[in-house]
Amino acid sequence: MADYLHQFIFGIYPYIAIMIMVGVTIARYDRDQYTWKADSSQLLRSKGMRVGSNLFHIGIIFLFFGHLVGLLTPESVYHVVMTAGAKQILAMVSGGFFGVLCFIGLSMLLYRRLFDPRIRATSRFSDIALLFILYIQLILGLVTIPYSAQHLDGSSMIALANWAQHIVTFQPGAADFIVNEAWVFKAHLFLGLTIFLIFPFTRLVHMLSAPVKYLFRTGYQIVRGRGRAQ
């Protein structure tokens, strides 16, 4: 039974989560664009918002792309410049640093959401639940660091990368690579897949509409002051 559950969670569940994420995201954008927004609470009270939000977003963006590159880069590519052990140490140090930044920012945002009366009154259950899910996922990620320190040869990182690369390339046997890994790695993966699953039902969809084009605009916005008319 345990083996079947492992095979389902890490061999089948990833495809269920990704299919729902992609399909529902497209449907939501097509049918209900009015809900496609971040629902920022800054207008209600800006105190603590800027620092917490900046720390959270800086941390989460680095962690996301760090996981993406770290898991999906083949060994033959990064072995040109570093060993698996060196890559794991780099991931532990950088992931720990940005993980702490993200933890501080998310703690500030969660405290603000729970204990500011105005913000709490306008918060939906999904808003608070999402912050708690991200909070737990972040804590699990930080807890993986001491476990990774027990295998500085990079064996755990290689196993996790093999699992991810087999999933995205639709190769069988992906779950077998992590069958002997520590519980915290498996919990971190499972909750990460669950975040993919719930992604299109939450405010997280706003990340797909980041205004990247403004970085490359050719013109500038003209701002006129309220000076005395001439």
Score class of each variant (00 low, 15 high):
56 F>K: 06
56 F>G: 03
56 F>T: 08
57 H>V: 03
57 H>K: 03
58 I>M: 00
58 I>S: 01
60 I>A: 14
61 I>M: 11
61 I>V: 08
64 F>R: 02
66 G>A: 15
66 G>E: 08
66 G>Y: 13
67 H>G: 05
68 L>M: 07
68 L>Q: 00
70 G>I: 05
70 G>C: 01
70 G>L: 07
72 L>P: 09
72 L>K: 02
72 L>E: 05
74 P>R: 12
75 E>I: 11
75 E>G: 14
76 S>M: 10
78 Y>F: 11
78 Y>H: 10
80 V>I: 13
81 V>W: 15
83 T>M: 13
83 T>G: 15
85 G>Y: 11
85 G>V: 09
86 A>L: 12
89 I>P: 06
89 I>G: 11
90 L>K: 15
93 V>T: 10
93 V>N: 10
94 S>T: 12
96 G>S: 06
96 G>Y: 02
96 G>F: 06
97 F>Q: 13
97 F>N: 14
97 F>C: 10
97 F>M: 12
98 F>T: 08
100 V>L: 15
100 V>K: 13
100 V>S: 13
101 L>K: 08
102 C>G: 05
105 G>V: 04
106 L>R: 02
108 M>C: 07
108 M>W: 00
108 M>E: 04
109 L>W: 03
110 L>R: 05
111 Y>H: 12
112 R>M: 01
114 L>I: 10
116 D>L: 03
120 R>E: 07
120 R>K: 13
123 S>H: 05
125 F>N: 14
125 F>T: 14
128 I>N: 05
129 A>S: 14
131 L>F: 15
132 F>M: 08
135 Y>E: 07
135 Y>V: 01
137 Q>P: 06
137 Q>V: 08
139 I>A: 11
141 G>F: 01
142 L>C: 07
143 V>E: 09
143 V>K: 06
150 Q>W: 07
152 L>Y: 05
155 S>V: 03
156 S>Q: 14
158 I>K: 02
158 I>H: 00
159 A>T: 05
159 A>Q: 05
162 N>S: 15
163 W>D: 02
164 A>S: 09
165 Q>Y: 13
165 Q>S: 04
166 H>S: 13
167 I>K: 00
168 V>W: 01
168 V>E: 05
169 T>M: 12
169 T>N: 15
172 P>D: 07
172 P>K: 15
172 P>N: 09
173 G>N: 12
176 D>H: 08
177 F>L: 13
177 F>M: 14
181 E>P: 04
183 W>N: 12
184 V>Y: 08
187 A>C: 08
190 F>D: 12
191 L>D: 04
191 L>Q: 04
192 G>I: 02
192 G>P: 03
193 L>Y: 13
193 L>Q: 03
195 I>H: 03
195 I>C: 06
196 F>I: 10
